[in-house]
Design a protein around this nucleic acid. Structure first.
Lengths: 189, 189
DNA sequence: GTCTATAAGATGATAGAC
DNA sequence: GTCTATCATCTTATAGAC
């Protein structure tokens, strides 16, 4: 968002702590006092870096978007579109223990903010759009037909599997479902 | 949970109002004062029917589970297992305008409570388990193989599509994805 | 830039009259 | 069973010293 380099690194620590706490507890359940404590920053000082809690939420979403952009760049190092799509899917398998306890960072954030929150809700949706657009681009290289719907099926499949993984506290759900998505990608004409 | 028939119907009104508000705003963002106002019950009186907010949450989940049991019974009136599974999926298409604004009632509830809340979190997961077990049973009548994984793919597919429908504010996502699930069910051996 | 102290309001929950 | 009044606490945010 704005310039994020502060000499003391407090801003970065606040964003990092907030990201973890928002993921572990949800945005609404997390207080600024908790974030401050976790980041080793005095409570009152939080407001020097973020004028409101919403500003902090926005910074966390921005940081998360950067991480997903990096993840996509990593996937792009694979040789074929199919391999790139699979690499993306297996990233969720690697997160499976985290998913069991707290759900998908993007999914739960969108679920919480998608209800009414117009400001940060739209911003969180941007990360899903980023993933969808990237996947659509890869699918289009496999076949022009239905690339957009394929992308929605893949990202939706990952999100649904992550939700069940979390609700049922079973990491194998993510593994099994990604394996099925893998085979589905291979089966495309 | 406990006996739910109160002469004045206040208990029912409280559960009904809470269910809607929890879905529209999330559990954490909804105050007991809002629930009381919406149900036309004085705030202090809420505590006669539910000793804590968690008790109210439990009652809402219980009521929701009853509604899903009824939905499954409805689906069972179809002649074939495939038709029953499709009927379940199309229930999400019929909810699509609600999904656009607030997400799936079961999905968002599990997303919010799945983070740490051990009490009601487990209870909310029970509804997903109910859907999964029912779907698995239907899939098994089509083919013994992979019935459990098929069920996870179907319910997960619905949940993922609902999440994207909500995040992207696009009801067509639900429609298109269920149509794909429909064709997938037809393609099973 | 950094921190302490505290205001201002919301929220879950209770006491006790009726 | 029902309701009013209120407590105790938490939480966001600000004022102002250093």
């Amino acid at each position: 968002m704005t310039d994020s380099t502060s000499p003391s690194g407090k801003r970065e620590r606040l964003v990092s702590s907030a990201a973890a706490l928002f993921h572990h507890q949800g945005v609404q359940r997390t207080t600024l006092a908790e974030v401050a404590t976790d980041a080793n920053v005095p409570l009152g000082n939080v407001y020097y870096y973020f004028r409101t809690k919403d500003d902090l939420v926005a910074a966390v979403i921005g940081s998360m978007e950067g991480q997903f952009r990096a993840m996509l760049r990593d996937c792009e190092r694979k040789a074929t579109p199919a391999a790139r799509l699979k690499a993306l899917a297996y990233a969720w398998v690697e997160m499976r223990e985290l998913l069991v306890n707290y759900g998908c960072p993007v999914g739960t954030l969108n679920s919480e903010l998608g209800k009414n929150v117009e400001g940060s809700g739209r911003q969180a949706a941007g990360i899903l759009r980023l993933l969808l657009d990237w996947a659509e681009d890869q699918f289009r290289r496999i076949s022009k037909k239905e690339a957009s719907d394929h992308a929605v099926s893949l990202i939706g499949g990952l999100q649904g599997a992550a939700l069940l993984t979390n609700a049922l506290r079973d990491p194998n759900i993510m593994t099994t479902q990604v394996r099925r998505l893998d085979r589905w990608i291979d089966s495309l004409p």
